[in-house]
């Protein structure tokens, strides 16, 4: 098989896809939590800025966000490498979607729990980080896992700005041996495996490390 002979390239591509996703998930979730906090508890200006950010990202395609960062920003003097642009685009994208998901979890916190925490003289930061956030994350974890999967699949677009991830590797192979359909079938199958594995891993990870049993 002329495609499978190229397995080192495919594997390297898949590894970068996983790496991009891991970085985006980690930073993106932090961004999302701060955005969700801003939208629910922040001062008016924060609420407004976070709201505008979330709407702007959710209503434009990922590929445009990526092109804006990679092709648009150099005109304003900010030059980004393909890898940096990809990570930033994925973080910003995941941040906006996850902010909405986490916000739903935060807003579902029963009033009594916050009052109980206040009566224990916890300060605002303690209440948010220890009383509100953990159960909120637990509640929305399945939705977050699907969103991370969607962002991982979306990262295929990053190949368009020559980030050497899985779709780029696939494209490179087909441009060398002209077996486009076979190359894309294998690339797509690898994405499917990655998506299923990622979903299982994150579900397991949440249960094992984040929420106990």
């Amino acid at each position: 098989m002329p495609i499978l002979e190229q397995w080192p390239a495919l594997l390297k591509g898949a590894a970068l896809t996983v790496g991009l996703t891991a970085a985006a998930t980690f930073i993106g979730t932090l961004l999302a939590v701060s955005c969700a906090w801003s939208r629910v508890y922040g001062p008016l200006l924060f609420r407004w800025v976070a709201g505008a950010y979330v709407e702007a990202i959710r209503n434009t395609p990922f590929i445009i966000q990526l092109f804006f960062l990679f092709f648009g920003l150099p005109a304003a003097g900010v030059k980004l490498s393909p890898l940096t642009a990809s990570v930033i685009a994925m973080v910003v994208n995941l941040g906006a979607y996850a902010a909405e998901i986490i916000r739903a979890g935060i807003e579902a916190t029963p009033r009594g729990q916050i009052e109980a925490a206040q009566s224990l003289a916890m300060n605002h930061a303690q209440i948010f980080l220890r009383v509100i956030l953990p159960p909120a994350l637990k509640k929305v974890w399945p939705a977050l896992v699907s969103q991370v999967t969607i962002v991982m699949l979306g990262s295929a677009v990053c190949g368009q700005i020559s980030t050497e991830e899985l779709s780029f590797a696939t494209n490179l192979i087909q441009s060398r041996n002209f077996r486009a359909f076979e190359a894309y079938i294998i690339g797509t199958a690898m994405y499917l495996v990655l998506a299923i594995a990622l979903r299982h891993f994150l579900t397991w990870f949440g249960r094992r490390f984040l929420f106990g049993r």
Partner: peptide, 22 residues
């Protein structure tokens, strides 16, 4: 549904583009 929701739309586009030609 699992195939279409578990693979990138980009790859689906490429597959169909080259697949129909095939």
């Amino acid at each position: 549904t699992q195939i279409f929701q578990g693979t990138p739309l980009l790859m689906q586009l490429f597959l169909l583009y080259f697949g129909i030609g095939l």
